[in-house]
Nucleic acid binder design. Structure first.
Lengths: 152, 152
DNA sequence: AGTGAAAGATATCGGAC
DNA sequence: GTCCGATATCTTTCACT
């Protein structure tokens, strides 16, 4: 999908304020409300805008444990990668997952409520993934910043 | 600020859909629209809900480079930590920053447009931080999942 | 691609219970 | 906390360019 300048402007504004009204948005980008809304819907249906969310300081009533997990694969066929990544996408505790340079290493950022939940995740999900050679977990003592939107 | 069950429910729903209408929200949590809106405003003004944002696949027109950077400190006085973290908060390219178990290691997730921008960030920000002993950067080849909201 | 009008839905207030 | 009413604003569709 290709974005023109107006689309980029819309995306920028909606990243800055996801609850901006379509009317304000239209005025800011110099379109009529209907034309603007059509673009927003296309961006949503085209997968550029995946959704909207509230930015919350304490995501739940309970504490969160952040675990950074490095997973090394010993098999790297496309089928294994696809199955691995499909499983990752199905696991909501996995916040981020990146395929890193170097070897076939994935780095995962995982959020769970407590150590027991991580143990469950480790046993029932991570260790059962196909082609996994090694799993190495590091725990966060403290969150300095998290999930920021990045530069606008 | 203390959240009761209804507040937690509101937060959960607004994290799942930041553009949910107040009428739907009120119905879902079992309150009248006015009572619900009052709670939402209190959550916003009390800093629990910091804002709303669109979840975007390609935040800008350009590609993004994701770098995971591990920073080892050689001094760990509170003053150094505070100065380090204040600098981190001032840098919008830093998406996540965690203090990890083990040594005085911070892990940063950084998003930049290209390698040149990372080099600039490395030179002008990271390497100038106080008390830094070592900086180790790993680059992401591919993003499997990123910035998901976590389990609801 | 864009505009503009019209209908229905929503937000947001004030006040009463 | 609830409900109700009033008003302004917004969303959404439709017809048209």
């Amino acid at each position: 999908m290709t974005l023109d300048d107006i689309d980029a402007h819309i995306v920028r504004l909606l990243r800055a304020d996801g609850r901006m009204s379509n009317a304000d948005l239209a005025e800011a980008v110099g379109l009529s409300a209907s034309a603007c809304l059509r673009r927003v819907r296309l961006l949503e249906r085209g997968g550029v805008i995946r959704g909207y969310t509230a930015i919350v300081e304490t995501p739940g009533p309970a504490e969160r444990l952040v675990v950074l997990t490095q997973i090394t694969l010993d098999r790297q066929t496309e089928e294994f990668l696809n199955r691995f990544e499909a499983a990752v996408r199905r696991c909501p505790e996995i916040i981020d997952c990146y395929l890193m340079t170097g070897l076939s290493d994935y780095v995962l950022k995982i959020e769970v409520r407590n150590a027991a939940e991580y143990e469950r995740l480790h046993k029932e999900v991570l260790s059962r993934l196909p082609g996994v050679a090694r799993i190495q977990s590091s725990f966060a003592i403290r969150t300095v910043v998290s999930g920021r939107p990045g530069p606008l």
